[in-house]
């Protein structure tokens, strides 16, 4: 076994004086004194040039081009940016990355995987305030994917769905609104707020079509039609559709959330007390009706 610098240094320290407060020095060059450079003519104009608005700190307004039509006024209308601030974004997560997370034990494939569990790995992040609405599972690594998972994402294309079903898993696409996402990005912090778990809102009109589509395995689609589409995809991509009914993990694979549910096993309206390890459930009729609707 060779010795590296740390080992050599620790050996040297046995014979050197005790390291104490009087012995310390910063690394050379890390601390430079803020001394004003005194060049020819004593520094002169401090980088402000000679006369004019520059030296007199009396600048023209930002964007002004000394009279000609400025850039920011030249173009009256740019329709290709219309509504860009309202468009939903789904940051990508490749199937290869998902496979790595499962193989490295960051994600537990024996339990249903949803956005919360992917965020809890710490390796994939969502910023809901930047209009990011969830996971977009991409098809990079679809050819090597072999993990049997029950996964819930926010956006998936046909090859991705085929790859997961070929491996014997189940994929669902589901929508989460902004309030639900804020609760999901840091579930621990959300519970510490002492606020009841909110109801998940329905998708906006332009997204309902996607999430009600059985070809996209939407959570609002008819389960019978979804099983039909599973067969269709198996025939299209040329693999034998595994029978999940005979799978010992059938219960785990078919575990699904209610459209109004954010977390598995926890109903909207409940307050989770992490300190006393207790769940508070409302018994008021009105509240129960509201949260059950």
């Amino acid at each position: 076994m060779g010795s590296n610098t740390a080992e050599k240094a620790l050996q040297m320290l046995k014979f050197l004086p005790r390291v104490c407060l009087a012995n310390l020095k910063p690394s050379p060059g890390s601390r430079t004194s803020k001394k004003r450079g005194r060049g020819q003519h004593g520094g002169d104009k401090h980088g402000a040039g000679n006369k004019g608005s520059g030296q007199r700190q009396n600048y023209m307004r930002l964007g002004y081009e000394t009279g000609n039509n400025p850039f920011y006024l030249r173009f009256p209308h740019e329709p290709y940016y219309q509504g860009h601030h309202l468009r939903r974004e789904y940051p990508p997560l490749s199937m290869l990355d998902l496979l790595k997370l499962i193989e490295m034990n960051r994600l537990d494939a024996s339990k249903p995987i949803d956005l919360v569990s992917i965020l809890n790995t710490g390796l994939y992040k969502i910023f809901p305030d930047q209009r990011q609405y969830g996971v977009n599972l991409t098809d990079e690594g679809a050819d090597v994917f072999n993990a049997k998972v029950n996964i819930e994402v926010q956006w998936a294309t046909e090859p991705v769905i085929a790859a997961i079903e070929r491996a014997g898993g189940v994929i669902t696409t589901a929508y989460y609104d902004q309030h639900s996402l804020q609760a999901m990005i840091n579930a621990k912090k959300f519970f510490e707020r002492g606020v009841p778990i909110p109801r998940r809102m329905m998708p906006p009109p332009d997204a309902i079509e996607y999430y009600a589509d059985p070809t996209k395995r939407g959570y609002l689609a008819d389960p019978e039609k979804i099983s039909e589409e599973r067969l269709v995809l198996a025939q299209k991509y040329g693999y034998e559709l595994p029978q999940i009914e005979k799978d010992p993990e059938y219960e785990m694979l078919t575990e699904r959330k209610d459209p109004r549910q954010i977390f598995y096993g926890l109903h909207p309206g409940w307050v989770v007390n992490l300190k006393d390890k207790v769940i508070l459930k409302p018994q008021d009729e009105e509240l129960e009706r509201y949260y059950a609707s």
Binding site: L10, L13, V19, L24, P26, S30
Partner: peptide, 15 residues
């Protein structure tokens, strides 16, 4: 207990 004995990092901490 056998980390690199970085005296400059120790200086930064003390400072």
């Amino acid at each position: 207990f056998a980390a690199n004995p970085r005296v400059d990092i120790i200086h930064d901490n003390v400072r």
